[in-house]
Amino acid sequence: MSGERRIPNFRLQLRRPDMVLDAALDIFSRDGFEKGRMEDIARRAGVTKSAVYHHFPSKTAILEALIRRHCLPETPGATLEVILVELTLGKARAVLDLVLREYRNIPGLGRLYWDEAVRRVSERATASMEEAESVVRAALSRTVVDRVFG
């Protein structure tokens, strides 16, 4: 035995959707949404293609789940200023970059991101919708400026 601890199957099953989403974010960030293949996502996640389809019926469903799960990290008690920074870092930034790259090709993608980000900012900071929209707008502006001029 190699001394490596195996993850019990039931625990692995609970983590599988997250593993698929992390793999999908890597693949879509590298190859783009259109060229990203379910086979590549499955391979990166260490699961079968049928396991990917078990959790997500399509690539579009994966993309929607990525937005819902990663558009804003879960930091309890964050201020609007902290949330503004969080929207432009890590997985949240990778999702935002993906949305900015693909929104013209996928109807409703920009609206889904906007609605989800504003809702989550408002809930997390107990802010008004106007304040939340202002934070999301600032994060979008910052990200676009970084991509164009950075």
Rank of each mutant, 00 (worst) to 15 (best):
R119V: 06
R119N: 13
A117Q: 07
D146N: 13
R93T: 08
R93C: 11
Y103Q: 15
L87W: 08
G90Q: 06
D97Q: 12
R104A: 10
N105K: 15
V144Y: 03
A78D: 00
I83S: 05
G77L: 11
Y103R: 14
K91V: 11
L89P: 00
A78Q: 10
M129G: 03
N105H: 14
I83Q: 01
P107T: 09
R120F: 05
T79W: 00
R119G: 07
A78I: 06
V136M: 07
E74H: 11
V99I: 10
Y103C: 09
V82W: 02
R93D: 13
S128C: 01
T143W: 04
C71R: 02
R142L: 10
V144F: 01
V135T: 01
S122Y: 08
E102P: 09
V121G: 00
A139S: 04
L96H: 11
A125N: 08
E102C: 12
S122V: 10
R124Q: 13
P107D: 12
D146S: 12
Y113R: 08
A117V: 05
S141F: 05
V144W: 05
E116N: 07
D115T: 14
W114G: 01
A92T: 12
V135F: 00
T126Y: 09
V85F: 06
L96P: 11
H70P: 03
G108M: 04
E133G: 13
V82Q: 14
R119P: 02
T88C: 14
C71H: 09
Y113T: 05
A94F: 06
R119I: 01
A132R: 06
E123W: 07
L112A: 08
A139K: 03
T88L: 07
D115M: 12
G108W: 01
E86C: 12
L87T: 12
E86P: 00
D115C: 07
L109D: 05
G90H: 00
A94C: 13
R120M: 07
Y103P: 03
S128K: 01
G108F: 00
A92C: 11
P73D: 05
E133L: 00
E81V: 07
T79E: 00
E86V: 01
N105V: 08
V121M: 05
V135Y: 02
L100Q: 01
E133M: 10
L140C: 04
R93A: 15
R101V: 12
R111K: 15
E102S: 13
A92N: 11
V121T: 02
A139M: 04
R120N: 08
A94E: 15
G110I: 09
I83M: 09
V95L: 07
E116I: 14
A125T: 06
S134E: 13
T88V: 15
V118L: 09
Y113M: 03
L98Y: 01
L80N: 03
W114L: 14
A127G: 02
E123L: 14
K91Y: 04
R120P: 06
L72D: 02
T79S: 15
L89H: 13
A94Y: 05
R142C: 03
R101F: 08
E86R: 14
A139T: 06
V145L: 13
A139G: 13
R111N: 10
G90R: 04
A127P: 07
H70I: 02
R120K: 15
C71G: 05
E131N: 07
V82S: 10
S122L: 05
